[in-house]
Nucleic acid binder design. Structure first.
Lengths: 229, 229, 229, 229
DNA sequence: CATGAATGAGAATTCATTCAT
DNA sequence: AATGAATGAATTCTCATTCAT
């Protein structure tokens, strides 16, 4: 099965009018190769230069193709970024779901999610850089755009919270919308810091302490103390 | 005392070589007016278009001045953003410190900080949009740049954690570096969501529930209970 | 008598339409001062930067006046250069005539001319730089313009040649037009070299050897040898 | 052999940092054509307007290409002028050397040089105009720049003088540095006059009379006669 | 499909000149 | 007269995109 077919046509998005994920090309290997060749080159260049500063020529050079060739596989420059999010990044996030399901309890599920999240970003730092940097940009500018991915993530987290609340391992006295952002925001900041400070240390080791903070918070007291307040 | 004088010259930053905060202008009202007129116009345009997409002409039109006038008050386009961060945003963050000191205990201090943070961003949504979107960008591209502001924030949080640990209201068994980012990341995500979803609801009401999550986490039990699992 | 009155209105020149030498201002001393103050500042700045690279602001700063003040004394930027040539430089060249008349014989007259020429340029290197650099420019671009000064010089040389031919000290078998340019070209190149190499040595000492070359040429032979050819 | 290859990379010059002579283009005819097409268009426009007044758009229009095309072949506007000097003009001056060597005696060598010099400039009046006008400019502004070409010329003249002194046809009692400039200055002035007065008469006919002046000077007598005065 | 030269719209920036004070 | 802030026309240069080969 072609990798592209999963997502094909599934994004109808403001601000990216006309951006469509390329047809899978009937398993035409060489075409598919070029698509990935260019996409990966673009991610590398975007990571180094930033999307705006990067030029099509740089991407072409990095991909070892001519400038014009890029327009055979992508509608325009924005379409490359669009494909990065809707195809490449999407696949990574899709796999999170499976990872979560391998655990039974809410806390373990969240731990698996965070581990996987950090692990995937650590495995592909260029992706990490581009995603962290441009996703927010895209969220702000293009209205819908990256929200699907964010929503997918928040939904996974939401399901975990639901389950935890049923299990009794997670409190019920908070807005789940807020809790989801609280979880997403913290991982993102951890990833940003890792990227900004130079991708030096082992990101995945942050997973357990982070999940601990999610569940227990920074507070010293038990529930009793809370109630005293 | 002139507002600018606080920060004048205090930023010497890679990637922004040559960008300097304008002299306070001897209380010359009209000069100072134009400076703010342009800066605010720029923030509005940057908020709507994004820094890169925004043009000097748009900013000039919004400010009601000629294109060339902008270059009397700012060295170049980047210098406008630089001034936004080093003067305008800085002032906001500077005030956080005072706010924190008004409370006695760590949890109240953190609550004040978060309230103030959300309150200031709610008060000036254009600033919020530009800050949230471009600060991350800037962190990635310009090496030092916005890190000062981030560091300032993290330091305030760090002090609160220290105090809480002494008071006994905050646990000691976590890396404080991680906890600080955990706190910053969550507020940022809350602000981002508020901005991205259209600045509709009251952001400040998020402060208390958020601080509650910081302290208590999402977990239902005390530590003991977790271990029982 | 006012210094300006000599030349006032005497230049009607293509490419400098509208450039007129300012009225002498009824001996209004302060006005006249500013005129010279600005003109000299301009010459200094033009010498350092070149006419095109120099800005009105630089000239104003050097002159210690506001930008706008320059437009009270000069019609526009080109008018400053025009005044440099038609007033300042002109006066220098005017004095050459007198110098020449102090000698009796052609060779001495030429020697006096060249000495004075080199001496005046050495005395005022900024003038030298601007004149040598911009005069040619002006000759090419503005059709008439600087030709008056060049013509004045060539006329003086022409008179010397005429006299020398009558006296028998100068040959008659050459086109006097060519000989005049031959003389002017050589001095200019000597001055250019002096300027370009950094105005270090004593320019006036070049006068005698140069006049020797003018009269005797580089050839070793006497007239007899010439005739053998 | 490609014409460009002679000079490629041979100029590393202050004030023209980053200006490089285009690769010879593997005899790619169309590339080479565009390079010359633009260079010649530029020379024409520079001749008419002067380098500073000329705009890239004018050059593009004259060359029949889009503005952007110019930047494919030249780094920037200054690079066009740089290529004019380092490639186009250089080639002309390079050929002088060969011309000189075809004669045996010093006087004939100098005559050949001057003839060739005048001939080449007459053949390409646009080149003549731009060279005469901008070379001086460049000498003043760019420190090293055009000095190479001037030096090349002066060296040729210097060699001729040396030879003549050995042969006995040239006097030994003058500074050869001065004599070289005396020769260069005079030709330049002759060319300037020809250009400024409208490129009407036959410039090459000036060669013989000029060389006669170089050798014999304007003086009527032999050396002896002078001393009698 | 692939190429890469050519395009030209668009953006930042400069600076001579004006004019209200 | 003097000022200098404001102007906006003009210019250089970039780069996404096209299209003939």
């Amino acid at each position: 099965m072609n990798l592209h077919s999963l997502n094909e046509g599934s994004f109808i998005i403001q601000g990216f009018t006309g951006c469509v994920i390329k047809k899978p090309d009937k398993s035409n290997k060489s075409n598919n190769d070029k698509y990935h060749q260019i996409l990966n080159a673009a991610i590398k260049v975007f990571a180094e230069q930033g999307y705006h500063k990067a030029t099509i020529s740089q991407v072409a050079r990095e991909a070892g193709v001519a400038d014009g060739t890029i327009y055979i596989y992508f509608k325009n420059k924005a379409d490359i970024l669009f494909n990065f999010f809707s195809y490449k990044t999407r696949r990574v996030f899709d796999r999170f779901k499976g990872e979560v399901e391998e655990a039974e309890h809410a806390e373990d599920k969240l731990r698996n999610l965070i581990r996987r999240h950090l692990g995937e970003f650590q495995r592909d730092p260029n992706m990490a850089v581009v995603f962290q940097r441009e996703a927010l940009q895209a969220r702000y500018i293009d209205e819908a755009y990256i929200k699907d991915i964010t929503k997918m993530y928040l939904d996974i987290v939401g399901d975990i919270i639901d389950q935890g609340q049923k299990e009794g391992s997670i409190r019920k006295d908070f807005q789940s919308g807020l809790a989801k952002r609280f979880i997403l925001g913290a991982v993102n900041e951890v990833i940003n810091t890792w990227v900004v400070t130079g991708i030096k240390y082992d990101l995945v080791t942050m997973a357990d302490p982070l999940v601990d903070l999610y569940f227990r918070g920074i507070g010293a007291g038990g529930r009793e103390m809370q109630k005293e307040n």
